[in-house]
């Protein structure tokens, strides 16, 4: 779908209106969505498509995906959460996953930042060096 500049700017406006302390507020998003669907203003569909795209990007930016070769203990989990929150700010969405392919260690991805401390990552690095 072709999204015009006007639709993009309107979507950005809606997105900004849904923020609370710099984080998208679920309640506001729902409220806004129901209002738009009720009135269905002209050209609302591209606006919603781009709004969804912005929300997806923001969600991705705020998601901390933590993969480890073995399951982490509760203390390790809480320590990690605390450290990442202090580094990236409040509002992070944490996703913990056990991944045997890592062979050992942890791989953390927050937005587009990757902190790789896994054996698989180190092996890959060594491979690229040779």
């Amino acid at each position: 779908m072709k999204i015009s500049k006007k639709a993009k700017s309107e979507a950005k406006g809606l997105f900004r209106a849904c923020l609370r302390d710099g984080i998208p507020d679920e309640g506001r998003v729902r409220e806004m969505l129901s209002a738009v669907m009720k009135t269905k203003p002209r050209g609302y569909l591209p606006v919603l498509v781009y709004f969804h795209y912005l929300l997806r990007i923001e969600n991705r930016r705020r998601t901390a995906r933590i993969e480890s070769a073995v399951a982490l203990s509760e203390k390790q989990t809480s320590d990690l959460k605390e450290n990442l929150t202090s580094q990236y700010g409040k509002g992070l969405i944490f996703e913990f996953k056990q991944n045997d392919d890592l062979l050992g260690g942890v791989r953390i991805q927050v937005g587009s930042d990757v902190l790789d401390g896994s054996i698989r990552g180190r092996l890959g690095e060594l491979e690229s060096k040779f």
Binding site: I57, R60, Q109, G111, S112, V114, L115, D116, R122, L126
Partner: peptide
């Protein structure tokens, strides 16, 4: 010895679209 050093930090993105030798990538904030 170089490869042993703890965590490696990098900035990644995902290819969203590719055509005619040009890619559009999501992420890569740095």
């Amino acid at each position: 010895a170089e490869a042993k050093a703890g965590f490696s930090r990098r900035n990644v993105g995902v290819v969203r679209e590719i055509s005619d030798g040009v890619a559009r990538i999501e992420g890569l904030t740095d």
